[in-house]
Measured scan of single mutants.
Amino acid sequence: MATGGRRGAAAAPLLVAVAALLLGAAGHLYPGEVCPGMDIRNNLTRLHELENCSVIEGHLQILLMFKTRPEDFRDLSFPKLIMITDYLLLFRVYGLESLKDLFPNLTVIRGSRLFFNYALVIFEMVHLKELGLYNLMNITRGSVRIEKNNELCYLATIDWSRILDSVEDNYIVLNKDDNEECGDICPGTAKGKTNCPATVINGQFVERCWTHSHCQKVCPTICKSHGCTAEGLCCHSECLGNCSQPDDPTKCVACRNFYLDGRCVETCPPPYYHFQDWRCVNFSFCQDLHHKCKNSRRQGCHQYVIHNNKCIPECPSGYTMNSSNLLCTPCLGPCPKVCHLLEGEKTIDSVTSAQELRGCTVINGSLIINIRGGNNLAAELEANLGLIEEISGYLKIRRSYALVSLSFFRKLRLIRGETLEIGNYSFYALDNQNLRQLWDWSKHNLTITQGKLFFHYNPKLCLSEIHKMEEVSGTKGRQERNDIALKTNGDQASCENELLKFSYIRTSFDKI
């Protein structure tokens, strides 16, 4: 039985969820670079991206490699990797027998973001014989899940209580170790020597080791999670996991709180800001991140802002960003909400898709409305799209047979046209069989910064309504002859009103 693990408890099935942008060198404390989270699957090609990484700022997932063999891993080693800020997950990587050479110096898994409450997941690794993470000293947050690894031993010899604050939620089941077939031998045991430290858990006094050649490092209890030197002297209180010299914040392997210019500090002093819960960055760093993602459509890219001495992905609820200094300031009234469309555009074809934009005031991208039916549609669209004030790209209304009016965009005031449909149009209306009105132009103002209007096959939309939009939106004169079809717009509506004058002759039985 794995020490510190839980057996036999019912657990939810383990679901495996399925960018080499360097964020800056980590400095003297770390020998390499800070790398983003990685999802490495199918083959070993991307694994080489770990070569210079000291910190993975995010998670590391290595999974679904069915053609790899043990010899493929023999020359692979990433000794610079010290810390993973989120979680480490391995799933069905064939041929991998140990992690001792792959990650010989991995010391800390912070667990800032977890995989279903777990910071370390080893699942269905069919050839893994031992973990071998002999320098792993601290899992700051989260638990361990090690399950269905039929060859995995050296679990009962690990004292997880020396690595985690609590072992109650560890789930370590259905491994070879369960069948008591392992016969784990710690260093020196074969020669009758006791080389590794022994600890007591559940009444068992057991030597602690990761492999037959690597003991588990056990520091004096007084050192807590700070770690200790090879001689057993406690590291500085700002260290986490390990250090090369005692009581020196510049000799830590990793930091308990924050890293700044080669030393570990309790908090980031001005003019620095907390970033990702582990390091200090200056304003320029946060500003660069903001600008890199301002026009990016890459998933996970955030326009970072500053709030409460932190550089964070977005302002919290009730705050909006001051564009001059990136500071989050309290909103006066309802907060603006910028919604970034991942692929640059979004099609609204149902109430469900409209709900995804609920509360958005600025759309960074283009909207395509293609709704053919739905219950209580006008009210639903207004509830979900009615706060949109600005669209950076274009607005396209296409084959939306259920629409009679666009009044559900009740606050839309600006279409920038930074991206144009077919390279020309910022407003595009095609084949809307029941569209009769755009907006009530006596109450609604709309500016279209650039781009043209396109109207074709809107049989109940009168040309007068379209011409009014040209005047109000500032697009009059931009359109070419064929942009607004004269014969297919309003051709099934009563669009022309003329005053009919009647004269009559009164007659009676005795007068003409």
Rank of each mutant, 00 (worst) to 15 (best):
209 C>A: 03
106 L>K: 00
270 P>D: 03
96 L>C: 14
124 E>T: 14
110 R>C: 10
204 Q>W: 08
135 N>W: 06
165 D>K: 05
60 L>N: 00
334 P>T: 14
67 K>M: 04
215 C>G: 03
108 V>I: 02
179 N>Y: 04
38 M>F: 02
188 G>F: 14
104 P>Q: 01
135 N>P: 03
156 A>D: 01
98 S>F: 02
62 I>P: 00
115 F>Q: 04
119 A>V: 02
143 S>Y: 02
55 V>L: 07
43 N>L: 07
250 T>G: 07
158 I>V: 06
144 V>H: 00
63 L>Y: 15
30 Y>A: 15
149 N>M: 00
275 F>T: 04
87 Y>F: 06
190 A>K: 04
95 G>T: 02
45 T>H: 06
140 T>W: 05
284 S>F: 04
209 C>V: 01
44 L>M: 04
152 L>V: 14
117 N>G: 10
271 P>D: 02
315 C>R: 00
175 N>T: 09
65 M>H: 13
72 D>A: 01
81 L>V: 03
283 F>L: 10
152 L>C: 13
235 C>M: 00
201 I>S: 04
180 E>G: 04
160 W>F: 12
137 M>L: 08
269 P>C: 01
298 R>Q: 06
302 H>V: 10
110 R>F: 05
148 K>M: 10
97 E>Y: 11
139 I>W: 00
88 L>C: 13
212 H>K: 04
207 E>L: 11
313 P>Y: 04
98 S>Y: 04
250 T>D: 15
249 P>Y: 04
167 V>M: 07
241 G>R: 11
296 S>F: 13
185 I>S: 04
326 L>F: 06
49 E>C: 07
110 R>P: 00
185 I>H: 07
247 D>M: 03
150 N>C: 08
206 V>P: 14
156 A>H: 08
75 D>A: 05
207 E>K: 15
145 R>P: 00
265 V>N: 01
207 E>Y: 06
299 Q>D: 09
314 E>V: 05
40 I>Q: 01
71 E>F: 13
48 H>M: 13
198 A>H: 15
112 S>D: 10
59 H>R: 11
237 S>C: 10
210 W>P: 01
141 R>Q: 15
297 R>K: 09
276 Q>G: 07
104 P>S: 01
329 T>Q: 15
226 H>R: 07
188 G>E: 04
33 E>H: 11
115 F>H: 00
268 C>Q: 00
59 H>L: 01
335 C>P: 10
246 P>F: 13
56 I>S: 01
212 H>R: 07
105 N>M: 03
83 M>E: 08
229 T>H: 03
174 L>F: 10
91 F>Y: 14
243 C>D: 01
116 F>T: 04
188 G>M: 15
250 T>P: 01
118 Y>I: 15
314 E>I: 03
271 P>L: 04
277 D>N: 14
291 H>P: 02
161 S>W: 03
336 P>I: 08
245 Q>S: 07
212 H>A: 14
65 M>A: 08
199 T>P: 06
255 C>N: 01
212 H>W: 13
259 Y>L: 09
275 F>D: 01
262 G>V: 02
107 T>D: 01
122 I>R: 00
222 I>S: 06
334 P>H: 02
214 H>F: 12
304 Y>D: 03
321 M>L: 05
301 C>Y: 02
69 R>W: 04
242 N>E: 13
28 H>A: 14
168 E>I: 03
262 G>L: 03
331 C>E: 02
42 N>M: 08
151 E>W: 04
274 H>A: 10
241 G>S: 11
146 I>D: 00
183 G>A: 11
108 V>K: 01
301 C>S: 06
184 D>I: 03
87 Y>N: 01
158 I>N: 05
299 Q>Y: 08
96 L>F: 03
331 C>M: 05
285 F>W: 14
240 L>I: 13
335 C>N: 10
239 C>A: 00
204 Q>L: 08
200 V>F: 12
152 L>F: 03
134 Y>H: 01
261 D>I: 06
42 N>W: 11
304 Y>G: 06
297 R>L: 09
110 R>S: 10
145 R>G: 02
326 L>V: 15
303 Q>T: 04
147 E>A: 15
324 S>L: 11
135 N>D: 07
162 R>T: 06
146 I>W: 01
135 N>M: 15
63 L>G: 06
103 F>L: 05
197 P>G: 15
247 D>Y: 12
238 E>H: 10
119 A>G: 15
224 K>S: 10
299 Q>T: 11
77 S>D: 02
270 P>G: 04
164 L>A: 10
301 C>D: 03
119 A>E: 00
40 I>F: 14
200 V>C: 02
157 T>A: 13
198 A>L: 09
33 E>W: 07
112 S>I: 15
95 G>R: 05
300 G>H: 10
272 Y>G: 02
151 E>G: 14
199 T>E: 05
158 I>Q: 03
220 P>T: 13
239 C>T: 00
77 S>M: 09
302 H>Q: 14
310 K>V: 03
102 L>C: 02
168 E>D: 04
300 G>W: 07
295 N>L: 09
252 C>D: 00
79 P>L: 03
161 S>L: 07
335 C>M: 07
220 P>D: 07
104 P>A: 02
242 N>Y: 11
118 Y>L: 03
95 G>I: 02
243 C>Q: 01
107 T>M: 05
304 Y>R: 04
111 G>D: 00
